[in-house]
Simulated assay, not measured.
Amino acid sequence: MSNDARTDGGTVTEADPGASAGLLSGLDAYRVLLYLGLLGMLTFFLIPIESGLVTSFKTASGVSGSLPFAPPTGGTFTFEKWRAAFDALGRGLINSALYAIPATVISALLGSFTAYGLTQSNWKQKYKAPVLALLVAGVFIPYQAVLVPLSQFWSMIPLQEWLGFLWALGINNDYASVIELIITHVAYGLPICTVLFRSYYKNMSDEMIEAARLDGASIRRIYRRIVLPLSGPMFAVVLIYQFTQIWNDLLFTLVLVQTESSAAAPIVLILAGLGTSLEGQDFALRMAGAFIAALPTLAVYIAFGEEFAEGVAT
């Protein structure tokens, strides 16, 4: 009896080994092309970072005598640019931390409070809708549109007089601009923080909140005992976003601090003029300064990376 014959008189069709091999080879070819494409994209995006990093370790002759992405060789390798950049940016790192950290934390907390009030409170919808509309509109206001009003506003506030007790302690009065930057970034960051937290709280379990209300928990207690502990992933998203925006902001610092010679000058303001002189641009020094300025934001992302991924997924 033939291998294809069945006992009931029918036939069976054996699988074609050639067809299976062709399908497998086609799948392998697709994966190879996919991985090659992904590798090409990765290389494309990493080349600028690699070029900047190797440039920061080159001498002036090494920068002018080699391709940007070529590593330093022989006598063109030096750590001097990193030392010089750190010396120039050291005070800027401290000044930026003085306003970036408080502004990030305060705006995140206020955004969480506001979003909680817009989602879990007993407000009527007709009151919530206008507030939410104003907050959403605030997200789309560009920095450039508020620079002149911002400057005029702070010129009318006698902050130097109000903080006179600090200057009497020997603190440089230039640090009044740090207070101005904290308040400005909190006000400007509140809308986006609220919108992000609101989307997170809208997906929170209503049954859990309702059960707490039935047990007699107040709105403050519900937030402190239930909502806040569950908000860790979204706090990570907001903290990373806000800290990155505040740390890298240059426009507000130009308006409020104005000059890199100020004792309160942040790192982005000092970095803007780093390596610039009448003799030309010191690209190696500028690249070293750029990487030093980026280290705090990288550290924040590494610290909250896992929670950030969870918050974005939700």
Rank of each mutant, 00 (worst) to 15 (best):
Phe77Gln: 05
Gly22Val: 09
Arg31Val: 13
Ile182Lys: 02
Ala303Cys: 03
Thr59Gly: 10
Thr253Glu: 08
Val148Ala: 12
Trp154Cys: 04
Ile47Arg: 05
Ala60His: 11
Met208Arg: 14
Ile94Glu: 05
Leu110Cys: 06
Thr73Ser: 12
Ala100Ile: 12
Arg198Ala: 09
Thr78Trp: 11
Pro68Ala: 09
Pro149Arg: 03
Thr297Asn: 13
Ala284Asn: 11
Gln144Pro: 06
Gly65Leu: 09
Val136His: 03
Gly74Met: 02
Ile209Asp: 09
Ala272Gln: 15
Leu196Pro: 02
Leu135Gly: 05
Val178Gln: 01
Ala115Met: 02
Leu254Gly: 12
Asp8Trp: 01
Val195Ala: 10
Thr59Ala: 10
Ala313Lys: 14
Val63Arg: 10
Phe165Asn: 01
Ile183Thr: 08
Gly40Cys: 13
Leu23Asn: 13
Ser277Met: 09
Val268Met: 15
Ala284Thr: 09
Phe45Ser: 06
Asn3Ser: 11
Glu260Thr: 14
Leu196Val: 14
Met287Cys: 12
Ala103Pro: 11
Gln144Thr: 15
Asn3Thr: 10
Gly138Gln: 06
Gly75Cys: 00
Pro229Cys: 07
Phe44His: 01
Ile49Thr: 12
Leu93Met: 14
Ser121Phe: 14
Leu214Met: 14
Asp8Gly: 11
Ala133Cys: 08
Leu34Ala: 10
Phe140Val: 14
Ala293Trp: 10
Gly216Phe: 04
Gln152Trp: 12
Arg213Cys: 06
Leu135Gln: 07
Ala187Lys: 00
Phe57Pro: 13
Asn122Val: 03
Ile106Asn: 01
Gln144Tyr: 05
Tyr188Cys: 00
Gln245Cys: 06
Gln160Cys: 00
Val131Ile: 15
Trp154Asp: 04
Arg31Glu: 10
Val146Gln: 03
Ala288Phe: 06
Leu38Gly: 11
Val54Gln: 07
Asn172Ala: 07
Ile101Phe: 03
Val139Tyr: 02
Ile171Tyr: 01
Val257Asn: 10
Trp123Pro: 00
Leu109Tyr: 07
Leu89His: 07
Val146Ile: 15
Glu180Lys: 02
Val105Thr: 06
Phe86Asp: 00
Phe77Thr: 11
Ile179Lys: 00
Ser51Ile: 06
Gly26Ser: 13
Val131Asn: 01
Leu27Pro: 00
Leu36Lys: 01
Gly92Leu: 04
Ile267Gly: 11
Phe308Ala: 02
Gly111His: 08
Arg198Glu: 13
Phe165Gln: 03
Tyr223Lys: 06
Ile171Phe: 01
Ile226Glu: 05
Gly75Met: 03
Phe308Asn: 01
Arg6His: 10
Val139Arg: 02
Ile302Phe: 15
Ile49Asp: 03
Gly275Tyr: 04
Leu256Cys: 05
